[in-house]
Each structure stands twice: as structure tokens, then as C-alpha cells.
Design a binder for these strands. Structure first.
Length: 659
DNA sequence: TTAGGGTTAG
């Protein structure tokens, strides 16, 4: 009955196939609607080859291919049997001989599409073992490895390929590169790409498209993308609409608004029609600087081209309006989103609330929040975190606290953003107990505060004069890979200095020093004072040595005096050289102190002799009282040597005077 | 006959 609505060709195929028991069953089990839908297969255009191999029942609808050889039918039936078998191993043992490589590839792709990773690997291993494998087997298998998030395995497979023609096959290479790029290993994929080219790969447009897609998620992605585009141009590979799409997305994610616009126009000039995604990327680029005039024009242009703005387009437009401070227009657009059923979750509301809050229009944000709660919009708590921050920002701490409590009562699940928000709210409200409670919760969930929250916590602890707690928090922050702001470090260093936590102060100084941030000069001097006060003279020496020319003379004098008095005697000469090197003119008092230390420790006589020898070369000579002191104790050092050195210094002094 | 892209919102 159903068959009568179909063309005669299809009817005949059904009749013909029904002779084969294994093939007739899937077809007859189709519901009648599905069969009716399949009627397009009776049209003159043959179905995709791909499809025909996976579903042999739909094969050969064109009259020319209506009848197949027995061997062909046997293969098709074997493909189905292997695909449906519950014991792949035995199915392959039974049917492997009938199946050609291309049949096995069909099965391989079938498993991949259905995410049957176990079967996929088992089949691939079998194919390798029986040497029934082609480059397309590798290409498909590696692609699916990438989808199953196993880039290491994919790379292993690729590296194990011995046959050079397969290794350099462009589609195999593209698969590997795509697999690395999509699994966040963009740098590795670029490296491999260069290696592949050296080994003989001739990249095609797909190769470049793959690599360009990787540029989206990385830092400096835009400049990398430009390099790739230039390389493409040099190889005379034409741009197509896919590549333009990728490029636009790269521009958008790197805030390259002007460039996105240029590519968009270039694309149109070359005759490629932009689709919703192209528009969306460009619109997203506009949203970065809130250019609502351009955004409006673009959406208009899109409509004239016959495209209907979808949820993403309209939400992005809302973002543009919010960024541009057009709150009235934003409200109207939000209403439109609601009418279209595009505001079923909290996101568009949050966008607007956040924008209002950032413009200090807290009460307006609050009214949006209340409106969305009244409408019972689906929320996972994000709107709470926005409003709690908003209340904090507006100094409405009571409201913030109340909302935090509401949130705690409604949701028992905390996520990173919420915990950060709550900690910030409680810090602002001065609720130490609640802050600690939230921190414990973070600990339990193995979540760590974000950069901003760390700052707020540290500032809060400083305000409460809990400097050691602030220090431990900063240490934690540093260990988690965050770089604290210089100003915060500087103030914590001062506080720690005041409570005589000298080594902790030095540790904060070092966190800053070994980060890539620039440091203001005064900080070196500040830490130097703290270290000197704490008698951490060796550390102080390192600070002086590492910051030649950045420390004032009085500070150097203070340090040097402290060092000569009680620093490590073995480093006295080094300190002399360091302060001289930083342009400080060493005075007699310091020399006298140094000599006194050496006299007290005669076993260090080599050091004294070294100092005396070094002095004249730098224009220094000992004064008479130091000289007398040395002479008085010269038996400790060897009279002859001392006499020689002092006479050298004397000669130098005379020369200096006559000059 | 194999490989490629993409949108919003922490």
C-alpha cells in the first residue's frame, strides 16, 4: 500500500532486495513515514555514495545500478552484519575475507559516527594486522581519536606510520593537525605542521582552515592567523567561505573589529554569500566596543539578504546595546527576545543587569532581577551573583547579604563564580565568620579564588590587621599562578615590616620581583630597610647588588653600616665592591669598621689583604687612624706584606694629592 | 572519497 506512492524504481528495488534475508529486514522494519520520506531517493540524482554504503537497502536506485553482482551483495550484507554484530572479533574472523578495504573503511566510519570507540579501535587494529588499510583509514581513525579526546593516541598512530606516502598524505596530515588543534594543543599542531612541510607535505586549503580554527582559542591568535593567510596567498590557494568564516571568528575573539569588517567585505566582493555565522562573528566583533550603529546596520543588511536574525544574533545585539549604554533600546530588545521565546534562560537578563550595575544603575538592575524572578525564568544562580556584586558595588551591603542568604537557601550547589561573589560580598560587609565559611567551602570543593577575589581577601585581611593571614593568602595566590598587583604587594610589605615579619615581607617582595610585572624603585628601598631592620643582611645584600643605581645613598649607607657591623665577615669585601659598583663613594668609617672586623678574626687575613690591595685601584686609601690600627696589629697578618700594601696606598695617596 | 569553520553569556 505504501509502496504504491513511491516510484516504480523503488518498488522494484524493494522486491529485488527482499530476496536477501539480511537486507530485507531493516527496510521492512522502517515505519511507513520514514519510507515515504525516503522517496526522494527515487529522483534522478543518486544518493550520496557515503549514505549508500552505510545503508545498503537504499543503494542502487538509479536504473543503471539496479542489479548488482552476487559478490557485491554479499559484501554489502557482510558490512551490515559486522556493524550489527555483538561480537566484532568473530564477525571479522568470519567475514573479513569477503570485505574489501573500502568496506572496512565504511564500517570504521560507522563506528566513529556512533562513538563506538572500543569497536573502532578493535577494527582498526584488525585492519592493520591484516594489512587491509589505506590512507583514508588512517585519516578517519585519527579524526575520531580527536573527537574522543585522545590526541596522544592519534599522535602515536601517526608516528607509527612507516609508509612515507601515507605519512605525507594531505588528508592524514589534516586529521592529525585538526585533532591536536581541537584538543587545545595548538602550539604542537603548528610545530608538527612545519615538520610535515619539511617532510614533503603540500598543504591544501583544508590544512590552513584547520590551523586557522586553532588560532581562535589562543593568545596572539590573530597574528598567527595572519601568517597562515599570507602563506596561503603565497601558495596561491584561494580563500573560500569556510576559511572566511574561521577568520571572522578569529578576528572577533581577538577584538579585531576593523579587520573583521575588512574580511567580511572582501568575502562579499569575491562573491561568497555570508551566512548567519558570518554575520554573527562580525556582530560579535562590533560588540567589543559597543558600536551599536554599525551593529544595527549589519542586522538590517542581514535581513535584506533574506536571513532571519536568530537567538544568537539578537542576544549579541543586546550585548552591543548594553555595552554602548543604550539601556532603553536594550529593554525593548529584551522584550522582543521574550516575545520570540528567546529569553527562556537568565542570560539576556543577566547581560542587561550586569550592564546596568556597571553603570551604577543598581535599582534598575534590581527591577530587571525582580521581573525575571516573577516570570520564573530558568536560572542556575548566575543572576544572584550579578546582583550580589551589584549591591556591593552600590554600597547596599544589607541587600547583598540578604541576597547571599537567599541564594544559600535556594541553591545548595556553589560554583566558582558564586563562591567568589559571596566572598567578595562578605568581605565588603565585614562578615569575617561568613568569609571564613565560604573559604572553607571553597577548600572542600577544591576551588580556588580568582584573581580579583584574592585581592579583595588580602585587602580585607589587611584592613582587619590580620597581616599574617593576608600574607598566607598571598602566598596561596602566588602558588596558584596569579600575579598580585604591585600596589597590594607594596602595602602588604609595609604592614609585614611593621609587625616585624621581615622574612614574610621579603617573600612578598620576591613574588613580585620574579613575576613579569614592573616594579617601582621605591619598593627596593622599602624592602632594604625592612631587611636591615630584621638583620637579614645577606638578603639585603642581594637586593643592593640586584638593583644597582636604584637605591638612594642614605639607604646604602644604612645597609653598609649594618653589614660592616654584624654581616657575614666573608661577604664584607663583596659588599664593598657592590656598593662601590652602584656608584656609592665608600667613606672611611666603613673601611674602619671592616678592618676592625678583620682584626677581630685574624684567620680572615687573606680577606683584609685583598681589601687593601683592591682599594687603591678604585681611588681609596685608608686614613691615618685605620692605618695605625692595622700597623698595631700587623703581627697578625704578616708585617712584611702589610708594610708593602700600606706603602702602595701611601704612594697612591700622594699621587692623588699632586693631581 | 579523505580532511576544514563558526556565533551569545561568568
Amino acid at each position: 500500500m505504501e509502496i504504491s506512492v513511491l516510484g516504480g524504481g523503488f518498488k522494484q528495488v524493494i522486491t529485488c532486495l527482499s530476496h536477501l534475508p539480511s537486507l530485507s529486514s531493516p527496510s521492512s522494519s522502517l515505519p511507513s513515514t520514514t519510507r515515504a520520506k525516503s522517496s526522494h531517493l527515487t529522483s534522478a540524482t543518486p544518493p550520496l555514495h557515503k549514505e549508500s554504503q552505510i545503508e545498503p537497502t537504499h543503494v542502487s536506485v538509479t536504473p543503471r545500478k539496479r542489479y548488482h553482482s552476487v559478490a557485491y551483495k554479499a559484501r554489502q550484507s557482510a558490512i551490515l552484519e559486522v556493524q550489527q554484530s555483538s561480537d566484532l572479533g568473530s564477525a571479522l574472523a568470519r567475514l573479513g575475507d569477503i570485505l574489501k578495504v573500502q568496506d572496512l573503511n565504511v564500517i570504521l566510519r560507522h563506528f566513529g559516527k556512533l562513538c563506538r570507540w572500543q569497536d573502532l579501535s578493535q577494527l582498526f587494529d584488525w585492519m592493520q594486522k591484516h594489512e587491509k588499510i589505506t590512507f583514508s583509514s588512517y585519516s578517519s581513525y585519527i579524526k575520531f581519536m580527536g573527537k574522543s579526546l585522545n590526541p596522544i593516541k592519534a599522535l602515536e598512530i601517526y608516528n607509527s606510520i612507516q609508509d612515507e606516502s601515507v605519512r605525507n598524505n594531505v588528508s592524514v596530515c589534516n586529521s592529525v593537525l585538526s585533532c591536536l588543534a581541537r584538543n587545545g594543543k595548538f602550539e604542537s599542531s603548528l610545530k608538527l605542521f612545519h615538520q610535515m612541510k619539511q617532510d614533503g607535505l603540500r598543504p591544501d586549503a583544508v590544512t590552513y582552515s584547520t590551523l586557522l580554527a586553532g588560532c581562535m582559542k589562543v593568545k596572539h591568535g590573530y597574528s598567527k592567523a595572519l601568517e597562515l593567510v599570507r602563506e596561503m596567498e603565497c601558495s596561491r590557494l584561494p580563500m573560500d567561505s569556510v576559511i572566511y568564516g574561521t577568520l571572522l571568528a578569529v578576528c572577533a575573539s581577538n577584538n579585531r573589529c576593523k579587520e573583521a569588517e575588512n574580511y567580511f567585505n572582501q568575502m562579499k566582493d569575491e562573491g561568497h554569500l555570508p551566512n548567519v555565522f558570518h554575520y554573527s562573528s562580525l556582530l560579535n566583533a562590533y560588540s567589543a566596543d559597543g558600536d551599536y550603529k554599525k551593529a544595527d546596520m549589519l542586522v538590517q543588511d542581514m535581513k535584506s539578504a533574506g536571513l532571519v536574525p536568530n537567538k544568537v544574533i539578537l542576544t549579541t545585539l543586546l550585548k552591543v546595546y548594553v555595552r554602548g549604554g543604550l539601556f532603553e533600546k536594550s529593554r525593548e530588545l529584551l522584550a522582543e527576545l521574550e516575545d520570540l521565546g528567546y529569553a527562556e534562560d537568565e542570560m539576556p537578563y543577566c547581560l542587561l543587569m550586569d550592564g546596568l550595575a556597571k553603570s551604577r544603575r543598581i535599582l534598575e538592575a534590581k527591577s530587571i532581577f525582580e521581573g525575571m524572578k516573577k516570570k520564573q525564568v530558568k536560572s542556575d544562580g548566575y543572576c544572584y551573583s550579578i546582583m550580589i556584586s551589584a549591591f556591593c558595588r552600590g554600597g547596599l551591603l544589607k541587600e547583598a547579604k540578604q541576597l547571599a542568604r537567599d541564594f544559600e537557601a535556594t541553591y545548595d550547589k556553589y560554583d566558582l563564580v558564586m563562591l567568589n561573589t559571596m566572598i567578595c560580598a562578605y568581605c565588603r560587609a565585614g562578615e569575617m565568620e561568613s568569609v571564613m565559611q565560604m573559604m572553607r567551602k571553597m577548600d572542600e570543593l577544591a576551588i580556588s579564588p580568582d584573581w580579583n577575589t584574592f585581592h579583595i581577601l588580602i585587602k580585607y585581611f589587611c584592613k582587619e590587621k590580620l597581616y599574617l593571614l593576608a600574607y598566607r593568602t598571598m602566598e596561596d595566590m602566588h602558588n596558584k599562578g596569579h600575579q598580585p598587583e604591585e600596589e597590594l604587594c607594596s602595602s602588604l610589605i609595609s604592614h609585614l615590616g611593621k609587625i616585624r615579619a621581615h622574612s614574610q615581607a621579603f617573600s612578598v617582595y620576591n613574588m613580585l620581583r620574579y613575576s613579569k610585572r614592573t616594579m617601582c624603585k621605591a619598593l627596593h628601598e622599602k624592602i632594604l630597610h625592612i631587611l636591615v631592620a630584621g638583620r637579614l643582611l645577606k638578603d639585603a645584600y642581594v637586593v643592593v647588588k640586584d638593583n644597582e643605581g636604584l637605591i638612594s645613598k642614605p639607604s646604602i649607607k644604612k645597609f653598609a653600616t649594618a653589614f660592616m657591623k654584624s654581616g657575614n665577615v666573608n661577604l664584607i669585601n663583596d659588599v664593598m665592591k657592590a656598593i662601590h659598583g652602584s656608584g656609592y663613594k665608600i667613606d672611611q668609617e666603613l673601611f674602619q669598621m671592616a678592618v676592625t672586623r678583620y682584626i677581630a678574626e685574624p684567620e680572615k687575613k687573606e680577606l683584609l689583604l685583598h681589601l687593601l690591595q683592591w682599594m687603591p685601584g678604585q681611588g681609596y686609601v685608608v686614613d691615618s687612624s685605620t692605618r695605625n690600627m692595622i700597623l698595631k696589629n700587623s703581627h697578625l697578618f704578616g708585617r712584611q706584606l702589610i708594610a708593602e700594601m700600606l706603602s702602595k696606598q701611601h704612594a697612591r695617596a700622594k699621587a692623588l694629592i699632586s693631581n
